[in-house]
Each structure stands twice: as C-alpha cells, then as structure tokens.
Simulated scan of single mutants.
Amino acid sequence: MNKYTEQFKLTAIKAYLVGSKGLRTVAQRFDIDVSLLRRWVSSYKLHGSISPRKRGQPYSASFKRNVVEYKRTHHLSLRQVAAHFGLGQSSQVGIWEQQYYSGDLESPTIAKRRKSVVMTKKPKPAVPEDKDDALKPREQLMA
C-alpha cells in the first residue's frame, strides 16, 4: 500500500516544476523527504507519470541483466537507473548488481520463510511438599 496518493505526488511534482523553489523548499512544504521528491520528479520527467510499472511485478533474469548493463554502460547512479526503468526502489538495482557480479542473477532471489515454532511452556519442577527442613532426612538436606 502506498503511503502517498497519486494526486498528492502529482501536486508535489508540479509545485516543484512550475515554481521557482528548490527541491528542499517544496519537500518541506509538503512535509516529505527530499530524496523521495527527487525520485518522483525524475520518474515523472522520464515517463510522464509517477509509477509506470505495477507493484509486485516479478522481474525476469534478462530484465535484471539489462538494467545492470544499462547502468554500467551509461555510468549512471542507482537512483537514475531506477527512474529510467520505472522501478520503485533504487536499492533493488544495487541488489541485482551484486547478484550479477557474483553470478547469482539466474537463481531465484525469493527467500523461503521458515514456519514459526510454537514454544510450549516448560513444566515447573516439582516442589517438595515438605517445606519444613526439620522433617527432611539428612541426605536430602546435604544435596
């Protein structure tokens, strides 16, 4: 679920593009992070919209490889490449880059979740009913 609506994002982007104020001023006015506004503006300039790709869409290994090779050949930052390809998270490009150089790009990257283990309560140790030490035998007292 998105934290910000499409209308809010468009309003913030247009306030930056139309106005003469900088990114920081517009971000403060809308109470958002500067890097978030920068990412929205970059994506909007490239694609004319905010989110060209659907959320939760799986990416093929060839697409990931193309993204990493595009970054390398054009000497772009993670943020620029993510904006160019319409990716939501620029950090995802960094993960793909690590996988590309380690040779793990072909293998599936989804980690299997472990089942939660239900912990049972341990029984309390049996407490002797005799609480008076005078009634206990000498061996039991020594132990």
Rank of each mutant, 00 (worst) to 15 (best):
V93T: 00
S107G: 03
L76K: 10
R114K: 13
Q98I: 05
H47G: 10
S102Q: 12
M142T: 04
Y44V: 10
Y4P: 03
E106G: 08
L37V: 03
F63H: 08
Q57Y: 06
P128C: 14
F63V: 12
E6M: 06
Q7E: 05
R114F: 05
R55M: 13
M1V: 11
L141M: 13
N2V: 04
W40K: 01
R113D: 02
Q7D: 02
D31V: 09
A126V: 13
A61D: 03
D132R: 02
A126N: 06
P58D: 11
L46T: 09
P58G: 13
K136P: 01
K64A: 15
M1Q: 04
L17F: 08
Q7N: 11
Y4F: 07
V93C: 09
R38N: 13
A111R: 14
Y44E: 03
P52M: 10
S20F: 07
A12W: 11
F30T: 00
R72A: 15
D31N: 05
T120W: 08
G19W: 09
Y44A: 03
A126P: 14
V68F: 11
L36Q: 12
K121T: 10
V26Y: 01
V81D: 02
V41W: 03
A134N: 11
V68Y: 00
D130P: 00
S62M: 12
K115V: 08
S116H: 02
T120F: 03
A83E: 03
S102D: 14
L141D: 01
K71I: 00
Y100H: 00
H75R: 07
K71M: 06
T109G: 10
T25F: 06
D132V: 12
R29K: 15
D33V: 06
W40R: 00
S49I: 02
K54S: 07
T73L: 14
F8R: 00
S42H: 01
M1R: 06
R65T: 15
A111L: 14
R79M: 14
S49Y: 04
L37D: 01
D33S: 00
K121Q: 02
L76W: 02
K9Y: 10
K9M: 08
A83L: 04
R53A: 14
S35D: 14
V81S: 09
K136L: 01
F63N: 01
K124E: 02
E139L: 15
D104S: 02
Q28L: 15
S102F: 13
Q92H: 04
P58M: 11
W40C: 04
R113L: 15
S62I: 12
Y59W: 11
T5S: 07
A143D: 06
K122Y: 13
K131D: 06
P137Q: 04
V93R: 12
I32C: 08
S35M: 15
P137L: 10
T5A: 05
E69R: 07
S107C: 05
P52Y: 07
K14E: 14
